[in-house]
Amino acid sequence: MNKNAFIISVLLAFFACFPVLFSNPYWIGVLNDIWLYAILGLSLNWIVGHTGLFNLGHAAYYAVGAYTAAILSTRYNIPILWLLPVAGAAAGLFALAVARPIIHLRGDYLAIVTIGVGEIVRIALENDIFGLTGGSNGIFGIPRPEIFDMRIRRPWQFYYLIGGFLLITIWFFYRLEQSRFGRALNYIKEDETAAEGSGINTAWYKLAAFVIGAVWAGMAGTLFAAKMTIISPGSFNFWESVLIFAIVILGGAGSIPGVILGAFLLVGLPEFFRNFADARMLFFGAAMVLMMIFRNKGLLPPLARKYAGVPRVKGGDA
């Protein structure tokens, strides 16, 4: 355990100093993307990794958050960082309304419905729904965020903003994993019938997990809107959902370090192979197939849970 703490401290120190050591805005920008996708991955991980719900439309909640923040900040001049909880709540409410009737569906049915929801949201945004979303051009001129009168506009400033939010995200989901709620979700994922038999209200827990993941994706959407200052429906298509999903699955569903590693590999690695940019998705696809055949828990699968006084059983969390 001490070894782990040491590795984490070294990594934290390294990434905290990164913008100082390497003042290359390009690589800082790449890391900003990685942090953002790590946040999105962790939010989806709560739904896919911990609860076992197949959500292939996560971009929808991300989009609702981003658009809520963009619309409110451009129309009413509300500082965008204040809108984090508002955008999260909007995405959460939307998820609640959507997931409430479908949460009981079996794995692949849920997958196809979430794809459908994602597409409906994208089409609605493209068709300028309620005259608010600006059609396929999207919304531009989203104001930069400000913290204590400091306007955040440079990559390194965003680096600390998004990185800071990532740390909060990690802490939040880590605590949630350890909680009664997290244990209940694990039980549901491993054996839903047994969980229900032990008095766990499975439908309620699944719905709550779905909504929490959506709320977090909505907040990530706010950060995205603030970073880009311009958003359009194209950023929230099906492939976005697939990318987030692949980050979770390839990195290691249910494992926080796994998801972060997934974000590094799927978002960061392609930057090193720009010459093969067209073949990027080809490799993703092949990697997903091979990974499922040879290592279906992902690169860094979650460790078995440890309880006080009970020795850890090897492979007990299978």
Partner: peptide, 14 residues
Amino acid sequence: AIVSALGASIFLQN
């Protein structure tokens, strides 16, 4: 199996 199917789909499409 579903993830593998999705992967195969992405692979073939690209």
